[in-house]
Design a protein around this nucleic acid. Structure first.
Length: 565
RNA sequence: GGGUCGAUAGCUCAGUCGGUUAGAGCUGCGGAUUUUUAAUCCGUAGGUCCAGGGUUCGAGUCCCUGUCGACCCA
């Protein structure tokens, strides 16, 4: 970039910083020096920890000068980081330094710092610097480093956002996440929490003898979930491929291969809308456990979530982010502390209808309520419309049911199983958070929904007692789906029939169906041990545990429409 | 896809009923200040008011279209 291009206010700010770079260079100092003796460096958190004994009880950030002096023993410390604030007083100056572990005040005095003091004018907020000095306490009791040396390590040519308000434009926050993480400490904290959550998931499974594996993300077929895929192409093989929508079918091939416990944490891709709960690429945990049933996984799911949450709380506390965790914990509308509720889907629907003062027989009546197409409504369609209006008036809760979308969805429902599932989605799921509460009523209780119809569960094992249902559950936390688990279907003939149903559905126009995976059926024909499998959305789990309103807050670089210029 | 709200300096925001040269704080630059905590004080620079069209003597402001974003609904 040439200097001649500069124009406008932003460029003037950048030009001023470039001038300082030139001044540094002219004086023989490298504005991008890379010769920090890292082994001599003390992190700001470590430095604070070393002087913690001098902290005054009660007063969080006041230190006793004599004790600090004794602990310091005249030692000199080397610290590095980004300059976050500066308050100048002529022949003295206060600077705020931030590194990856925390922050510390630097105190520069002309008579102590010497000639480096003049170079303060070459520094800007945002610059990376190296500082050296002894630890002392200022008049207000703040732990500080009294500088004996200070130099630039990496010039920031662009200014940081407003030091008090930070970056508030939501679009700018997600577009310039590197600025957001500097300007919004909580945003950085959420990313740290995410890493800890993933560690917690791994630790839980590793302790139980699971093997972490990686399976293909480039698939030749669509399978493992109901979703629209991204398409891509391999040139050398001239092969059309899909980005995976789920790892399920490969993980179960590993069960056939003799691995009894496997898991994968990885990216999946779904070519669907973007919302506060959906990003086109997202992370899923799936694990498969031979000789387990979905009932085994019920208890294991509660244990997993509590274990991860405990791990998160403990690690954040250790990192000095305990206040963040406490704030997130209080903000949660749900609690993991009490045993989760367990509901059979059909019973949940009947109970949901009852709570809305709707007749149980409505389940059988649903097909006639489907929204008809066509310009002029038939008498049947008019009757259906009147019937829905009547039903919607039966109770306050019935009024809150999304009848319009239920009627639209019913058009595509081809079986009583699909209609049961729709009834669950419209009469039960929206009310889970208010209907199932902790014993004190303060928070919602996570709810397991059990026994899904086989038509909406093409990879799950049928129930022995009722083959129209499957050994499957989903976990809803505050009304939002978090986990999906079932006993695996290992009968190759049944699986082949389910695939054929999926293909037939696609032929009838459904767009979120699976392809027939002949290799997977062949794998089952070689024999898959009885097993249960589990899936969990890592992004959603992170949102829940850190009380973040948007999935974009838990993803480092969420997908955005490209900037236009 | 529909509705509501929004877009003004690098950042955070004002801008009255349509009226003269669009303001403030932070950041920057110059100055004062050797214990500050969003330091303070003085001075100064910084604008295609999202884009295009329209109404008007006159538009940041009113109208239309578009772009982008947020939220809600689907």
């Amino acid at each position: 970039m040439s200097e001649a291009e500069s124009q406008g206010a932003e460029d003037a700010l950048i030009a001023a910083r470039r001038d300082k770079v030139a001044r540094s260079r002219a004086a023989g100092r490298d504005p991008y020096a890379n010769d920090v003796r890292a082994e001599a460096r003390t992190s700001l958190a470590a430095l604070r920890a070393a002087f913690a004994p001098a902290r005054e009880a009660g007063e969080a950030e006041r230190y006793q000068p004599e004790q600090v002096e004794r602990l310091g023993e005249g030692r000199s410390y080397l610290v590095v980081g980004r300059l976050m604030a500066r308050r100048g007083f002529g022949k003295a100056s206060f600077l705020r330094l931030r590194d990856g572990s925390g922050e510390l005040q630097l105190f520069a005095k002309l008579d102590v710092l010497g000639e480096d003091f003049e170079r303060l004018s070459e520094l800007d907020l945002g610059d990376h610097v190296e500082a050296r000095g002894g630890v002392m306490v200022t008049k207000t009791g703040e732990l500080s480093l009294q500088l004996t040396a200070l130099r630039l390590l990496g010039k920031a040519l662009r200014p940081l956002p407003d030091k008090w308000h930070g970056l508030t434009d939501v679009d700018q926050r997600y577009r310039r996440r590197y600025v957001d993480f500097v300007a919004t400490p909580e945003a950085a904290g959420v990313l740290r929490a995410r890493s800890i959550i993933v560690q917690g998931l791994r630790a839980f499974l590793d302790e139980r003898g699971f093997l972490e594996v990686e399976t293909p993300t480039l698939h030749t077929l669509v399978g493992g979930a109901a979703a629209k895929p991204f398409r891509t192409h391999h040139n050398a093989l001239d092969l059309d491929l899909f980005l995976r929508i789920a790892p399920e079918l490969y993980l179960k091939r590993l069960l056939v291969g003799g691995f009894e416990r496997v898991y994968e944490i990885g990216r999946c891709y779904r070519n669907e809308g973007i919302s506060t709960r959906h990003n086109p690429e997202f992370s899923m945990l799936e694990y498969y456990q031979a000789y387990a049933t979905y009932e085994t996984l019920l208890a294991q799911t509660e244990a997993l979530l509590r274990s991860v949450d405990a791990h998160l709380g403990a690690r954040l506390e250790a990192l000095g982010q305990g206040a963040d965790y406490q704030r997130w914990l209080e903000a949660r509308p749900f609690s993991l502390a009490e045993p989760f509720a367990r509901l059979d889907m059909r019973e949940a629907v009947l109970s949901g209808l009852g709570r809305a003062a709707l007749p149980a027989a409505l389940l059988e009546e649903l097909p006639s309520l489907a929204l008809g197409a066509g310009a002029t409504p038939t008498p049947e369609q008019l009757a259906a419309g009147q019937r829905v209006e009547q039903l919607a008036r039966t109770s306050e809760r019935s009024r809150r049911v999304d009848w319009g979308n239920l009627r639209r969805a019913l058009v595509a429902a081809e079986s009583s199983g699909e209609r049961l599932f729709l009834a669950y989605e419209f009469f039960v799921e929206p009310f889970l958070a208010e209907d199932y509460r902790t014993s004190d009523g303060a928070k919602s209780l996570p709810v397991f929904i059990l026994n899904y119809p086989f038509e909406v569960s093409p990879l799950a094992r049928r129930k022995d007692a009722d083959p129209s249902l499957t050994d499957r559950f989903e976990l809803f936390v505050h009304g939002r789906e978090l986990c999906n688990a079932f006993s695996e279907l290992n009968d190759p003939d049944d699986q082949a029939a389910r695939f054929r149903d999926q293909v037939a559905k696609k032929a009838r126009g459904a767009d979120e169906t699976m392809d027939y995976d002949a290799d997977y059926v062949r794998a089952l024909e070689h024999g898959m041990p009885p097993a249960a499998g589990f899936g969990l959305g890592v992004d959603r789990l992170t949102m829940m545990l850190t009380s973040q309103p948007s999935i974009r807050d838990v993803i480092a670089f969420p997908l955005l429409r490209p900037e236009t210029e």
